[in-house]
Design a protein around this nucleic acid. Structure first.
Lengths: 347, 347
DNA sequence: GCGATTTGGGAAAAGGTTTTCTCAGAGGGA
DNA sequence: TCCCTCTGAGAAAACCTTTTCCCAAATCGC
């Protein structure tokens, strides 16, 4: 390692001017040498490179940005304070961008218009190259208008403006994965317990649920809508299993992992075995919940980290001047199989 | 593909030069007018202000930063991918800084040295005014050395370098709050179930637990150390309650909310009532868990959001040139009382 | 009425880098 | 010898704002 050449912790960073002086050339030549531009003898270039290395020169991004009109920063707006959805997404975005030298400003705007406006203006003042807007609900807007911003905007996991590019998870596809998995395992009476009717995804998943059942000629029970909570999962089990025994479901597809957790606990309390008597699948693949249920919960993963990556790359390409067709792109979910839905009849 | 999209409205922002031209003054005068500097007639100043307003002028932060050697940005390094601790902390930091016009670069470094180094260099190149380092464990270093960075560094919820300023939660104080609460409620046989011995906080809380019991002349049982999981809470109940009935605890102080959740569930399965027979207190006040237990869980809150605020303000003052004594500052926890520990005998 | 001070405002440098333009000298062809 | 081209490198403008210095006009004291 070359850390023995590490420069003294100089008070001020070393500038190109100092490198040039030390190498006995002009700043113009130094700049061109380090950027591989211009024409000069190979030895001159090498000498300048070595000098820069020895002095620990790093170009001042601020100066570069000012000149290039490109700051290599983007803003990430979110209103997901709790962050269950935001964090994997943010880390996906960050991963996609860090290799391009782009840094991410984190802007937590809650649901506060003033705060959102403040952050957006700070971003614009700092000349971010673009903005990624993300939220905790696919079907809600952030409390700020990003439509006429003169910089590219990508929406991820939140409702995009018309004419903008948005990435969301394919919730219907995710629901299909779950229900088809049950069908493959030979389950016949598949129930669906989900969240509040005010959420768009609830209807999207319910529709897919009905479609798959219809495709397989299985009876469709009306989905039970309630809250995104364990308590509702508990309660729903009462509604599902308090009728005559023959009509009780042998599988429950839940709208999120908390509901699934409530369902599994309630089933156990009733002496109903999971997965032997009833299979359960959740949604979100919130690992800390899914792995704590007994048995561990099979769940649909929305691949939010990948979604973040895609959003990041899309923004990068927009910033680079590529055009992109507006509209919503749905990214596939995946089913993470654990032990709450059993094995196929033959297996 | 390039026909149907509009990536760049390409309206360039209006510059001070344009404002000055439009107002019929020099850029110097315009700058001074807008910043309240210099001397000029009130009328001139007002005219320039109006012109700027009308044109929607916003100063270019990049140019300002270059000149002032102050970028009004800070970097936030974290290795807490999952973010249960990071997010409240981050949002506290962000809140403290946004009003000062300071934006926060989010750097998720996992436990990857290369990634951490990459992010730190990107921050330095972008001339951040300072760095806040945070992690998922108080007793671990981030995978990067921030000691000789020529910019201020504040550590929050992670192990600081010597001679640096660090903020952590007062875990011993938090444990005291819990155990003293039990004492006040008249509980006499208070057990402690906590996480792995490899965590420093486990010992810190256990010490406080012992101290408080001793102060109250109550019997001290050896803390049960295991994992940070529900499953361990379950298991621990077996160890605690399988002995002779008279010696079973009437209160359990748990090292985190997941353990507490496991404890509460296991107690219910045994027919032991919470809080009537046994009180339970958790740690972390992870609301989504604490509110889902039956009954809802009383828990120690580490005030991470406040901790983030303090860290942000401390960094700001360091950046502003104030000196700060190195060392670790412990911020108090608070007890969030729900229903898992009952009411005082008389109440 | 004359020097001294205040007033209102401008010119220019600074901050660090990139890029275009310019230029001196070397070499080649006629 | 003269003209032309090529090579290697420097000067300077540009990006945008802030701040220091400076100057002309106006005002003041006597």
């Amino acid at each position: 390692m070359s850390s023995d050449a590490s420069p003294a912790p100089a008070k001020t960073p070393v500038t190109l001017r100092e490198v040039a002086a030390s190498a006995g050339v002009s700043v113009a030549t130094a700049s061109k040498a380090l950027n591989g531009q211009g024409r000069m003898t190979a030895e001159t270039r090498e000498r300048i490179r070595e000098t820069a290395q020895r002095l620990g020169f790093r170009p001042n991004s601020l100066a570069q940005s000012l000149l290039r009109r490109r700051s290599f920063t983007v803003g990430l707006l979110t209103n997901d304070t709790y962050g269950r959805f935001s964090l994997p997404l943010m880390s996906g975005v960050s991963d996609a961008l860090v290799d391009a030298g782009v840094s991410v400003f984190l802007c937590n705007v809650e649901d506060d218009m003033r705060l959102a406006q403040l952050h957006v203006e700070a971003m614009l003042d700092k000349r971010v190259d673009g903005i990624i807007a993300t939220g905790k609900r696919i079907d809600r807007h952030l409390p700020v208008d990003l439509a006429n911003l003169r910089i590219p905007v990508i929406y991820a996991f939140t409702q995009p403006d018309p004419d903008a590019v948005g990435f969301v998870s394919d919730d219907a596809g995710g629901a299909r994965l779950a229900v088809e998995h049950f069908c493959r395992l030979g389950r016949r009476r598949i129930a669906h317990v989900s969240g509040p009717a005010s959420f768009a995804v609830v209807h999207e998943r319910a529709r897919a649920y009905r479609e798959v059942l219809a495709e397989h000629g299985l009876p469709v029970a009306e989905p039970l809508l309630g809250a995104w909570s364990e308590a509702w999962g508990h309660e729903a089990v009462g509604k599902l299993f308090d009728g005559e025994a023959g009509r009780a479901p042998d599988a429950v597809f839940c709208g999120n992992d908390q509901i699934a957790r409530g369902v599994i606990d309630a089933l156990r309390e009733r002496g109903i075995r999971v997965p032997d008597d009833v299979g359960v699948i959740g949604f979100d693949n919130w690992e800390i919940v899914a792995e704590a249920t007994r048995p561990p919960l099979t769940s649909v993963d929305m691949n939010l980290s990948a979604l973040g990556r895609e959003a990041g790359l899309a923004l990068l390409s927009l910033v680079g001047g590529q055009a992109a067709a507006p509209g919503i792109r749905k990214l596939p979910c995946r089913l993470v199989v654990r032990q709450s839905c059993g094995r196929p009849p033959g297996g």
